[in-house]
Design a protein around this nucleic acid. Structure first.
Lengths: 234, 234
DNA sequence: GATGTAAAGTTGTCTAGTCAAATTTATGCA
DNA sequence: TGCATAAATTTGACTAGACAACTTTACATC
């Protein structure tokens, strides 16, 4: 692993263990550079990582500080994560029910978003995802047969789709572009999630691998009472 | 302005004017460094900016490319912007109606988020914001008297609050932490927005200045039919 | 022509340093 | 003590270069 990622993790861990209680101030870049035996730029890169995670902030001429006040964010949507990870981050146990896989031709929107041919076939993976046994997300994934092969339906296993693509095909999803909407459940869901009184957040995402290839589209209809969603804006 | 910001703007403009049509590939870092007479690192910083805006992507060993497919994002929530800017980005004209300002003591949540004292007074600015005359957002801003002074209610002018804080007080809002929820309008709104059939997106934000001081809290209840909201996840 | 391999090209990480900009601390004076 | 100013500290921007990691191109071979 890279030095700055390594250092970033070490410092993040020390923050979580509250080792910088000294006025919520972190050591200076110079001090950290000496401690980790790297150049100042490498330390800056590591600290920038923690800033993006919302863990710390800094002020020119002054230093780096722990972020204490403000919204308490367990995780932000800025960092890509699967639904599985979102549920696990909230200390809940993830499960899948009502899993359904079928195949159909792509529509024009899918052709445009995923760079595929009209003749390609698309696998549609529908399921309800649960947290501690409670239905929490209705999710629909759309991915081309040209990526997962004809036998996807037989070999697919419940859980994180992106994890499955890593293990089975060596495809690493590292980025997604997402649109967020608020929708009324009755209008959009073929299945009904239990406890559906409040409206749902709808996440429309295009997922990209590390070569910036669009891999699949996802539609997630999420309750937002058990899990909270945060965004950091700069 | 810094070199990398300058260069970033120039390249962004050239992208918009479609000057890199050559296979959607941008010049190499080296070429750009020579053209702008700066070091490679400075070019990298400029290009990173454009990546974060979702305009381009890059592949190690290969180069930088225009992002063409995927969701068509006019602007993302990742970059901080006011409601005013969001409306203007969608090529709509912004307006304010039903403006109301009053004062009260802070509650515990506000005290925690904004680092203020129990004795401080809070100004509550409520209004409905319109796009092309149509009600689109009900917004409530909560800011301490210790920042805007006693006479805030008299001198406040409609439009962007963050812009007003810049001009009047030299306070620059550069960051916010936001929670996103989906809510049913009837349950939460003291005023009713017109055309309120669909549920609303609720944005809860704490806004920070360039010294990382929390300045104000905002609650925005937004229709998401006229304006779309995107997030880039990495 | 097809294929595997070497070479060239491009981006990623990292170093060591300079100067600028902002903040904090120290200092001298009233 | 209080206060303005100077000095020291700290982060921000930038440079020039080295090597690693990855991709693309060119080339030799079959």
């Amino acid at each position: 692993m890279n030095k700055y990622e390594e250092i970033s993790k070490v410092i993040a861990d020390e923050i979580d263990r509250n080792l910088f209680a000294e006025g919520d101030k972190l050591p200076t870049e110079k001090t950290l550079a000496a401690r980790f035996q790297v150049s100042r730029e490498t330390i800056r890169k590591a600290l920038k990582n923690l800033i993006e995670l919302g863990k710390i902030y800094n002020i020119q001429g002054s230093g780096y500080y722990l972020r204490r006040n403000g919204l308490h964010m367990a995780s932000t949507l800025n960092k890509f994560s699967s639904i599985t990870e979102l549920i696990q981050n909230a200390n809940l146990t993830e499960g899948d029910i009502e899993v359904q896989i079928f195949k159909r031709k792509p529509n024009d929107e899918e052709i445009g978003m995923l760079n595929i041919n009209k003749q390609d076939s698309m696998f549609i993976l529908e399921r309800i995802r649960t947290a501690n046994g409670e239905s929490i997300v209705y999710s629909r994934n759309i991915l081309p047969q040209s990526i997962v092969g004809q036998d996807f339906a037989e070999y697919y296993e419940p859980g994180s789709l992106s994890k499955y693509l890593e293990l089975k095909y060596g495809i690493y999803i590292v980025e997604s572009l997402m649109e967020i909407q608020a929708v009324r459940e009755e209008d959009v869901l073929p299945y009904r999630l239990k406890l559906s009184d409040p409206p749902l957040l709808k996440f429309i995402q295009v997922h990209y691998d590390d070569k910036a290839n669009p891999i699949y589209i996802s539609y997630d209809y999420m309750r937002n009472d058990l899990i909270r969603f945060y965004v950091r804006r700069t």
